[in-house]
Design a protein around this nucleic acid. Structure first.
Lengths: 218, 218
DNA sequence: TAGATTGTTAATCGATTAACAATC
DNA sequence: TAGATTGTTAATCGATTAACAATC
């Protein structure tokens, strides 16, 4: 197979732009919803409409992953889903843990449940003895003092932090010390991790303030 | 006061770049945490370190909002917080509602509680009669059939959608029909709103898939 | 003063979009 | 074929960064 300039760059660096990964993920999500309908093919402008993108963005992202459609029929939905999986899914299944079984932690454990085969939440953690006996979405809650052992036993590589802000730093240190590779921080406390760990942060207050700002300006 | 080129552009368009608003919001968050310490001034490189930014980004954002520090002392923390508020906070206090009192809705109601004076969650909504009698974080939960009335009575302009994905479309339609100005969608269903409504979407699965992708590539 | 920092412009980098040949 | 769509490059747009004079 002949690769174009962009595909070569990606092969070399092994990386797609972050925005493209994000869009491909969203794209697969809406395509999975289309599966039960009788529709077999979809056009770039249909996908674009669903995701607030332009058709060119959609086609370009597919180009970057080297997937090709047909000018007359568009893209085969099932094959496209597979192509996205081949491109963005990890080669080996990744196991994740949620640290903090408050409302947010529970919401995430329940929501992620069985959505992707290669990405599973396999453990929850908390410090509250009352929570430790209970399961959420069929996932056992462990005491955080057993974190080292559970991470090793269950081969956990990704952690989702939903503890109170004041505990975020300690939890992060613990995770880094136990060789975690990726962290999703839902705490308002900004964290620092070594370069080899991927960190993504999300703060609801900032999202809300952005909405408030752009609302007021209209 | 003399405005530079960038400040003029902003005055004209009444808009800061989205990224700048985001960073200013995050900046205020960490500055508020510094308030209880005796420290009175802070340098751009200190802020940058806290937020994973460069000092230049920080100074440029402050320049865009027309705030000036001192080369010897840096920025006065209290004044900086006020300047950020003056820049990004809405002129009039905005009232928000959370639609859907599942774990996620509860987490958000509790978390946002009293964090900002100009941005308050004043109502929760659900369809479950059991939830409607209860308050979360002191905020009353209404039945969604009363949405019109409550939005009018409490002057609600921003809505946070945390209902199951299947109900997201109906809720959005209801909100748009009732004159909401900004929507934060925590549902995996992508929504469409008229141009005059500001929409921000967040999907945990996409965040997780991004982490998994960038973890695998290292 | 020397050294550190700020404020600002110009250059660079990266992402989006316009344009269009190729395809069905 | 004519018309719609795809795939790709080059141009444009926007955001970040390098560079440096001004300031304390």
């Amino acid at each position: 197979m002949l690769l174009n300039y962009y595909q070569c760059t990606i092969k070399m660096k092994n990386l797609l732009p972050e925005k493209t990964v994000e869009r491909l993920s969203q794209c697969r999500r809406v395509l999975l919803n289309k599966l039960d309908q009788e529709k077999e093919f979809i056009f770039s402008h249909e996908i674009a409409k669903l995701l607030h993108l332009t058709p060119v963005q959609v086609r370009r992202d597919f180009m970057l992953m080297g997937y090709t459609g047909s000018p007359s029929k568009g893209y085969n939905i099932k094959k496209l889903i597979k192509a996205i999986g081949y491109t963005i899914d990890p080669d080996e299944s990744q196991n994740a843990a949620v640290i903090g079984m408050g409302n947010l932690g529970k919401a995430i454990s329940k929501y992620v449940e069985d959505k992707r085969e290669f990405l599973k939440i396999v453990a929850n953690f908390d410090v509250d003895e009352k929570k430790i006996s209970k399961s959420v979405a069929g996932i056992k809650c462990h005491h955080i003092k057993d974190l080292s052992k559970v991470i090793r036993d269950l081969d956990i590589t990704i952690a989702i932090i939903t503890v109170p802000a004041n505990d975020a730093y300690d939890v992060k240190e613990l995770l880094v010390g136990n060789g975690i590779k990726g962290i999703l921080n839902f705490t308002p406390a900004p964290l620092h991790v070594p370069d080899h760990i991927y960190l993504e942060e999300f703060d609801i207050i900032t999202s809300l303030e952005k909405v408030a700002y752009f609302v007021k300006e209209k």
